[in-house]
């Protein structure tokens, strides 16, 4: 009997930090956000329950345009990260020798030791009008005057891909690593060419890794703030910027909370659609890698 109680207590103690974390840092703030977002300001310090903040969002095209723009750019970044990350992951997991593999993996990790902010400033040093690339092109005679590479969508996309690609590579390497080489050889042996083997065997096998990488990358991108602001400037029109504006600049917490919730709902919807389309579930993708 006593033994059982001790066991139960141990379980409780082990479970407590997780429960506290979920409760205090995830559930409570979000409940607060929901309540906040459902309050309408009718007079100074007077609030009423209502969907006004959400209606405002729907009525103002600039808001939902920004959200759609953020979503589509995040999708583009995800696709690019997958296209660039897949060959890298394949090389690390399947082509490189045992020793090179560790070194390459470490090389991928090293940029993470530096904060997002510093890395974004690195890009600024390279890309600004008086930056390295512009100066070099002028020196080599390719262009006449200085060129500003910053503050456009392409730069934002490049910067974001650079920031998040690691989160694509890691799950891909771990799924491809688990793939028996003889599976690829069997694909060739049975008459498949390189493209067939990639399409029918490697990609379907790596699907859980691809989906989990895409989910992480999409979430990180859609919710990122620093990189779009620093590389895209004031007119990058990123949705997180809108949320920041509502909270900090306009001091309209109710509207900001509604926006925050809409971003969460929107990204969840996109991921749900993605899972449906690829025929995967959360359980066999993110939970596995």
């Amino acid at each position: 009997m006593q033994q059982k109680d001790i066991k139960r207590l141990t379980m409780l103690l082990l479970f407590a930090p997780f429960a506290l974390w979920i409760l205090l840092l995830i559930l409570l703030p979000h409940i607060g956000m929901v309540i906040l977002s459902l309050r309408e300001k009718v007079a100074p310090r007077v609030y009423e329950f209502g969907f006004g903040n959400y209606i405002d969002f729907a009525m103002e095209p600039i808001y939902w345009n920004t959200l759609l723009r953020t979503g589509s750019m995040a999708l583009l970044v995800t696709a690019l990260a997958l296209l660039i990350g897949f060959p890298i992951a394949y090389y690390i997991a399947k082509v490189a020798g045992f020793r090179t593999r560790g070194a390459l993996f470490l090389l991928c990790l090293i940029p993470l030791w530096v904060s997002d902010l510093i890395r974004a400033f690195g890009w600024i040093l390279l890309l600004r009008e008086t930056g390295v690339i512009s100066t070099f092109l002028q020196w080599s005679g390719a262009i006449d005057g200085p060129i500003e590479f910053l503050y456009n969508d392409a730069t934002v996309v490049v910067g974001l891909v650079y920031t998040v690609i690691l989160f694509m590579i890691v799950p891909l390497v771990s799924t491809l690593d688990g793939m028996d080489n003889s599976m690829i050889e069997a694909g060739y042996n049975l008459g498949g060419n390189g493209f067939t083997v990639l399409r029918r065997i490697i990609v379907p096998y790596a699907m859980p890794g691809i989906v989990s990488g895409c989910i992480v990358v999409f979430m990180l991108t859609a919710g990122s703030y620093l990189t779009p602001i620093l590389l895209g400037g004031k007119n990058s029109s990123w949705f997180t910027e809108q949320i920041y504006d509502q909270f900090i600049t306009r001091f309209n917490w109710e509207s900001g909370a509604a926006f925050g919730f809409l971003l969460l709902a929107f990204t969840s919807l996109v991921i749900w659609l993605g899972l449906k389309l690829s025929g995967q579930t959360l359980a066999n993708t993110v939970a596995k890698s």
């Binding site: 599976m183 060739y188 042996n189 049975l190 065997i201």
Partner: peptide, 16 residues
């Protein structure tokens, strides 16, 4: 290999 009419049963079978 994909052009040879030699097929192979792998050690761990390598079924997909």
């Amino acid at each position: 290999p994909n052009k040879r009419n030699v097929k192979m049963v792998f050690q761990h079978l390598a079924l997909f």
